[in-house]
Design a protein around this nucleic acid. Sequence first.
RNA 1: GGCCCUAUAGUUCAAGGGAUAGAACGGAAGUUUCCUAAACUUUAAAUACAGGUUCGAGUCCUGUUGGGGCUACCA
Length: 590
Amino acid sequence: MNVELYVNQKVVDCIKALYGSENVALQLQKTRKEFEGDITLVLFALAKFSGKSPEETGAEVGEWLAANVPQVEAFNVVKGFLNIKLSNAFWREQLSQIAGDEAFGHFPPSGKTVMVEYSSPNTNKPLHLGHIRNNLLGYSVAKILEANGHKVIKVNLVNDRGIHICKSMLAWQKFGNGETPQSSGKKGDHLVGEYYVRFDKEYKRQVTALMHTGVAEDEAKKQAPILQEAQNMLLLWEQGNDDVFDLWEDMNSWVYEGFDATYRQLGVSFDKTYYESKTYLLGKEIVKEGLKKGVFFKKEDGSVWCDLTDNGVDQKLLLRSDGTSVYMTQDLGTARQRFSEYSFSELIYVVGDEQNYHFQVLKLILKKLGYAWSGSINHLSYGMVELPEGKMKSREGTVVDADDLIAGMIATARETSLELGKLTDMAEEEQQQLFRTVGLGALKYFILKVDPKKTMLFDPKESIDFNGNTGPFIQYTFARICSVLRKAQEQQLEPSAAAAELGEREVELVKSMAAFPQVVAQAGTERSPALIANYAFELAKEFNQYYHDVSVLKEENAAVKQQRLALLTQVGKVLKTAMSLLGIELPERM
RNA sequence: GGCCCUAUAGUUCAAGGGAUAGAACGGAAGUUUCCUAAACUUUAAAUACAGGUUCGAGUCCUGUUGGGGCUACCA
C-alpha cells in the first residue's frame, strides 16, 4: 500500500466530513527532518477552501484525523503545515508488506509495449564515452519501464553503410597489407577505426599538396583523389559490386565482434538489431505516398521536400536530386515498419540533444502524413559528455575510448581492493569478477546519477571516485548487509518483520523504503535513471548511519534482533532492485 | 539572424510552487578493544543579473549576460 495515497484518501474523507466537498487537490509531502511527523499536508490551498486560516484548518483536520483514523497517532501544525505522525503498527505493517512482496518496486503489467532504440553506432570507429552514456541510459530506461509494467523491446540501429565505412575500407586496401584482428591481435572495431584515422591523414596530406599547387581550399577538399576514390567505392557498394561488398562484410564483421565485446562489458543487450544497409531504402515508399497526398513537393531539379514553414520550421529535404534518400527518409521508413511489426504504444529514441531538431521534424512529418501513432514517437534527448577542455574531438585525439575507460575503472577497483586487503581468502576468479563489478558500478553510477538532459563533465585526469556519492558506496553498503546476514544465518537466526515494536531509527528506514515504488514510477514517467540513483544513495547513506549507531547481532532482545535482521534483509533487497534498474550489480562481499 | 537546451558551494551533482536550498569530492578537525573505516561524526562554503506573477519562487513568466547545441542534397 502506498503511504501517500493512503493518507491522501483519509484526508479526502476528512475534508468531505468537515467541509462537505470532495474536489480538492491535496498537497502532501514528506515531513522535513526538523519537524515531528511522517507526512505533511500543506494547508495554504486548503485554507482558501475552508475559509479559515491555515492554522485553524490544520488544527481541525488534524483533530478529525486523530479521532477517526486509528493509524494517525499524533499531529502538529507549524505555520501552514500539518505534520501527521503515523502509528508504529502502521509502519510495522509496511515492513511486513515489503518483506512479503518479492516484486517490491515492480508494477503489474500495464498492457503497453514500448520500443526503446539506443546505442546506434557507426561502424567506422570504436565506441567512446558519449556512446557509454547513450548505452547506459537506454538500457536503464528500458529496465525502469519494465519495472513500471510495460513490455519493452530494446532495439539497436547500426549505421553500417555510407561514406564513412568506405573510407576505412579504402585505407585498409591501400595501407593494410592484409591486417586482420586475428593477425594483429587487435580488437576489430579499433582496427577499423585506425584505418579511418589513416584515411583522414592521407586525405589531409593530399589536400595540402593540392593547395600548394594553387588550388583553393574548398576545391582541394573536393578534388583530393582519395576522397573521390571513397565516393566511387560507395557507388560500387550501392551497385552491389562483389569485391566491395565482400570487403565491407569482412570489415563490418570485425567491428561487430568488437562492439559485442564492449556491450558485454557494459552489460547492455538488445532484443533486435536493425542494419541501415537493410533499412536505408525503406523511406522511398513514404516519399511516393507523401507526394500523392500533396504533403511533399518536388522541386525543378527533382529533389523532394516537405514544407514545414507553417510549423515554424524550414523546408526539409527527403530525396536528393539524384533520387537517393537521406537520414530523415530512412527514419520515416523504419518508424513505419516498426509500428507495423510491433504496434507499439510508444517508440523512444535515445539520441543526443544535438538531434532535437531532427526528431521534432520526424514527428511533424509523420503527423502531416496522417499517421495516428506519430504522437507515440518520443525523443529521449540527453546532453553531451564534455571534457574540461570542451567537446571530445576525434581529430584532436581527445576522444575517451570506451574500452580503455572500462579497463581503467576495473584496474582502479583492483588497486583499491588490494590496498584494503579484505579479500585475501577469496578465489582469484571471484576477485576478478568483483573488480569488474565494482569498476563498472563506479562508472555506471557516475554517468547515470546525472539528469539525462544535462550536459555532464568528465575529467580523465581525475579518476572517478570510489568514495562518497558513488556506485561503490552503495555496493559497500550492500556487502555490509550481506555480511551481517551471513553471520546471523550461521547463528541460526531467522528474520521476522513483525516480531517487535519498531524503534524510531527503524521507522525512518521503513519510511524510506516505502517510498521506493513512487520513485520507480516517477523515474518511469520522467525517463530519468538519475532519480533511482539518488534514491539508492539516500537509502544507503541512511542505512550506514543506522549501521554505525545500532548493533544488530549484539542486540539482547531476541525479537528486536529478528526484526532488525528483517529490516536489513529488506534494505538490501531494495538497494539491489534499485541498482539493477541502473544495470549495476551488488556484490555480497567487497 | 532564427530556434532549442542550460546557469545552484572551489569542483561534480540534488531539491514534485512550500518550512532554515541538500549531498559528495576537495579543505579543516575527530571516531577503530564495537556486525567490513570503500564507513561514521563535526565544520566553513552557493541559487548569474534585473523585473514580474504568487500568501510563498532555485523552481513559473519577461528581459539581460554567460555556456552548449541545431539551423547540410552528412548520419
